[in-house]
Simulated scan of single mutants.
Amino acid sequence: MLSQKVAQQSLRRLAVQQPYAMRWSLMTAASPVAVVIGRNIQTRYAATSTNTTEPTKLLAEQRLRRPVSPHLTIYRPQITWYGSAVHRITGLMLSGPLYLWATAYLASPLLGWHLESASMAAAFGALPLLAKVGLKGFFAWPFTYHCLNGLRHLMWDLGRGITNKQVIQTGWTVVGASAAAALFLALL
């Protein structure tokens, strides 16, 4: 109710102060009949080009004129690069064999393989000591690196340790701690 009174008062002021503006706005406004008939439809003309070159040739020319972004080859390698790449590689090193072993474990009854825990433990126990340490180290280092670097990423998500100095320090800390933890797990 209040909004209607405010609108009516503003229209009265406009009619009194600028009578021609009121008439002009009413003349240019579309009437309901014009809307129904379709005479007030706004049209936009299509932008056309007289260029008759082949579209693929035109795209090739445009690509040649685009600026080239800097590539990895012009930057000095940093621990953050290596850390990111190794984090992804260790994730693949852990998940790939796990998927293969899980698939083989599920298919083992059909194929007559013995992949139950007792036979796996017996097979691992029969290996020489150096092979046991090497096999455990092969899986321990990607596991520890991926876990510790994942904790580092979680800290970044919390907004901690994001300065350049801290990122470099934590990167080398993760490398050292993962090597020590992997050695400890391999020698257990």
Rank of each mutant, 00 (worst) to 15 (best):
Q169A: 11
T43M: 09
G125L: 03
V86W: 03
W24K: 03
S108M: 01
Q4E: 12
R23V: 14
S69N: 05
E116Q: 12
P77F: 01
Q8Y: 13
K132G: 08
L158W: 11
N51Q: 12
F184P: 00
T170V: 04
T53N: 14
L185S: 07
L115G: 05
V133K: 14
R66W: 04
R13Q: 15
V174H: 04
R13D: 15
Y105R: 01
L110G: 09
A102I: 00
L2V: 10
Y82C: 06
T50E: 10
G83N: 04
V16M: 11
P67D: 10
L185K: 01
A7K: 12
F138T: 14
T80K: 00
R152V: 06
R44T: 15
F138I: 08
K57D: 15
Q78T: 10
L106R: 00
L188P: 00
A102Q: 03
V133E: 06
F184T: 10
R23L: 15
W156E: 13
P142L: 02
L2M: 04
A118Y: 05
M22W: 05
S3H: 07
Q78D: 10
I41K: 11
A131Y: 10
A15T: 08
A121W: 08
T50I: 08
L94F: 03
F143I: 08
L111W: 02
G137F: 06
A85C: 01
Q78P: 00
L187S: 07
C147R: 03
R65M: 11
R66T: 03
N51T: 02
C147N: 03
N40P: 06
